[in-house]
Amino acid sequence: MEKVIETQDLTKAYGKGNTEVRAVDGVSLVIERGEFTAIVGPSGSGKTTLLQLIGGLDKATSGKVLLAGTAISDMSGRALSDFRRDHIGFIFQAYNLIPVLTAQENAEYVMLLQKRDKKERRARVQSILEKVGLQGLEHRRPAQLSGGQHQRVAVARALASGPDIILADEPTANLDSTTGADLVDMMKTFNEESHMTFVFSTHDPKIMSRAKRLITLEDGKIISDVRQN
């Protein structure tokens, strides 16, 4: 199977000497294309930091991150921004959407950055918004959408640009359990249909059970890595 994410002894430390805190401590892992992986652990275990390092949102203190064979840990500036734009889809915990853009415009946003043709953008976004169950709500702004609908738009945006990987940092944290479960089920459906790689963090046991692979972090280290049916 193709390696799509690989980290090599990845470390992120804050402070120095006696006050140093390692949010991520020597994490080495490989995630293959098409995996549906949950990174779990208690608060402060380093889940968000690991996802941010994988997504190039933060710089590692040491170690490497390779995405689809490209060492993004060596990138910076415009090259890194462009790589994120073209290869990574993000779903954040909350306030994912740009408040002044409609649902459709939010979903199109990354494709706008990619300077895709308007017709192509519109057609693709329309199709994906239907798939996530938001047809008819395209012209609403985030303030007019529920929390669950927000996250659906975020999923649509992440999928629309056709990335290699989708990283979701506790996407269900601000949702009720039913809505959260529905969201993860939707992501799983997309994973199975499009073979797109999903990596998300959670501490919700109901959500964990839907993942095919569970990587457990504690104090910045991987303490277990299991595949489940």
Binding site: G55, D86, I88, Y95, I98, P99, L113
Partner: peptide, 13 residues
């Protein structure tokens, strides 16, 4: 936070 989201999505500085 909004700027962080935009940067995370690949918006150039």
């Amino acid at each position: 936070y909004e700027f962080g989201v935009m940067l995370g999505l690949g918006t150039r500085r």
